[in-house]
Amino acid sequence: MSVNSSWKSNLPLYIGAIILSIIFFYPLYVLILITFVPAPLNNLSPYPPQIPPGFTFYNIIQAYSALDLTGPVTRSFYVAMMVGGLSLALGIPAAYGLNKIGVRTANKFIIFFFLINMMPGIVVAIPISVEFLKLGLSNMYGVALAQELVVLPLSIFIILGGFRALPRDLENQARVDGANLPTTMYRILIPMNRSAILVAFLLSWMTSWDEFTYAVIISPVKSTFPVQLYNYVTRAVSFEASAFALTFTIPVIIVAVVLQKYLKSQSFTGGLSS
């Protein structure tokens, strides 16, 4: 089927695409409605209209002046950075080692990591929270350490895929040229594998930015943005919360769209499926 084939033959396709687009866009539309329509006309009225009856920035201004913004943002940002960093610190060496020990043995480790990944977050989070309290470890470090559990297997897998695609002799050549292993890593292997590493970092970052379970259990107050949002929602300050939610969602949407090409590629879904 070519791109230029007629509208008529593609009609069912377009109808399907449009219906699905509506189904998937509608919730985002609701978020935009709540954010930009004056609250009394909108979610404070019993049957809010689907077509915006008015427009205002009041909700956003109100949200930004009344709610604590900088705290959750900075905390979320730092935690996401730590999680991204941890993914690289643990993932790059692990992927390097796995690439060296042969595909069969490596696959066994990969299975192990993905199995561990199935461990319910809440089961793990509660003892961690209790132990961290005992150790007096800062909550944000605890959250980052725990969230890393979610992304480590996928990070290892993505970076491993990158290493597998590199010509083996590049590393050997560097060793022959007089570089020791750390130098070879830093000067050759990491720069050569930078796109996989970047993707692993971004995915980790994004996952942490969104993560709720570990964050709310390990650090229920003065926490990251999703926990803060949850607190606002339970206190029923919904129109400010929506303004809040929308602004925090925009960067993630951008990252997701940027990563779209990669997300659609085999290496990502391959990571989930093998």
Binding site: F212, P226, V233, V252, A256, V257
Partner: peptide, 20 residues
């Protein structure tokens, strides 16, 4: 893009939207 976007949206945000 349109159908992938929700993948990037925080669970809490989507929970909030659906609670509305």
């Amino acid at each position: 893009s349109l159908v992938i976007i929700p993948y990037g949206i925080s669970t809490v945000v989507s929970a909030f939207i659906f609670s509305q």
